[in-house]
Design a protein around this nucleic acid. Structure first.
Lengths: 243, 243
DNA sequence: GGCAGAAGCTGCTTCAGGTTAGCCTTGGTG
DNA sequence: CACCAAGGCTAACCTGAAGCAGCTTCTGCC
């Protein structure tokens, strides 16, 4: 695939206008292609000198295990997303990452990344921006779990996922394909799988949205946005911020 | 104050060895000093073209308001911390920031920041590292609220705060000065103030720690670490990672 | 010195969400 | 084709934390 058509380049280009030098530096970073099967961790908590990845296709979830066997999913990585940036900067991974669909990803070695930053600071700024955007999502999830009810936070999360997928052309207002199980949803939202099931049933019975058969379908988008107090602006912006 | 003695420089220097050029660029960023009184927001959600700040002294809390008047505190900024980096990158603040003690901070204008990044990529990398470290803390908080009990997460948070303060010389194993009220603690941990009060009483009655009179005192540090499942490593590292 | 406001503290009641325990469907596999 | 493992679904019961209401400091201030 041409680097310029990759979801990653599309995402960064939304933030900075990249020069041909930037794109060249990105190609260096973006070469070692790997396929990863479902169900085996790509990154382990505590692992040293871990590579980072840029996701080309598929879904990955980043999570932390707790003693007692429970886990908290922190974020999902979708096509175009960076995985494990923090692990590279800290030299030790602080979480696990598990593909939940078959994944194609490019390995990014720490040296390549740091060299690219030194050679082309605009790229560094763009990556910083992308990282910030992901953090904004983690923050939103924190607010959800801390202060929203189970129904509100479920609705909020499904809207957010939709917004992210729309950015890479994988969703529209009517809904999107979603490979998540109710168990994954539960571990994301800090709920039990049983309770998630109750919540999804209620959302369905009130004609708000359907989570079924690997697909999320919005029956009444506006009502869901209102219920979740979803801020439409927080993922959007109006084009490159740096020229 | 000499730039090299600032808590900010000390923090960054723990990650990269900064050259004199880096320090020069940092001085440009780090000049407009401001004093901010307690109780008036420094940053408002939705505000455009907001400056960022580097905290020289005092405590700030970043929070999000929800309809219904509840709020979730997302993070605290302590001396040496960056405040509002995301607001600069996105050109719109996505949260509020409130000083909880009198604060001295240096204003950082978006141009200065981006110029400094272009001139000295090492500085950009260092700032990326610092931002990642803060995000790691938000993540830890997410895990706490999602999957830990009220007691565990309270203990965990107070340990984490201690670890951060130790980094800038404001805490030791016996405890630290802490200007937080039980209300702030509640809004951080996703609990009610009433319940926080009960939890703190239990921690006190079991001779684990005392949160009283603007001070946190650990009575049995090891037991608190065990209770909270606190990962001692996740804030530590062994010196500059980039040379 | 008395008042106001913030912070801390406690008991009682209520409820959101967890736990346990099954059942049903689907799809993969020896 | 029978078995079994995931995932989905539901009901009955339990509990941790919230909500409410009211009390006690402590501090600053007119």
């Amino acid at each position: 695939m041409d680097i310029q058509d990759s979801p990653f380049a599309r995402k960064l280009a939304a933030f900075v206008q990249l020069s041909s030098a930037d794109i060249g530096a990105m190609s260096d970073v973006y070469k070692r292609r790997r396929k990863v099967p479902v169900g085996r961790d790509m990154v382990y908590q505590g692992q040293k000198d871990q590579a980072a990845y840029i996701i080309a296709s598929g879904w990955v979830c980043s999570y932390k295990m707790l003693p007692g066997g429970t886990r908290q999913i922190v974020d999902f990585q979708l096509p175009g997303d960076f995985l494990g940036l923090r692990s590279v900067l800290f030299r030790t991974a602080d979480h696990n990452a598990l593909p939940i669909t078959p994944v194609e990803a490019s390995e990014v070695l720490p040296e390549d990344l740091l060299n690219a930053f030194t050679a082309t600071p605009r790229l560094a700024t763009a990556v910083l921006w992308a990282a910030s955007r992901d953090e904004a999502m983690v923050v939103e999830n924190l607010v959800s779990i801390g202060r929203r009810t189970a129904t509100e936070r479920t609705a909020h999360f499904l809207l957010e996922l939709g917004a992210r997928l729309k950015l890479v052309g994988l969703a529209d207002k009517t809904g999107y394909k979603c490979p998540l199980s109710q168990y994954l949803l539960a571990d994301t939202l800090g709920l039990s799988a049983v309770h998630i099931n109750r919540v999804l049933r209620e959302l369905r019975e009130e004609n708000l949205l359907i989570f079924q058969g690997g697909r999320v379908t919005f029956l009444n988008f506006e009502a869901v946005v209102a219920l979740a107090d979803f801020d439409r602006a927080y993922l959007d912006h109006d084009g490159p911020l740096l020229r």
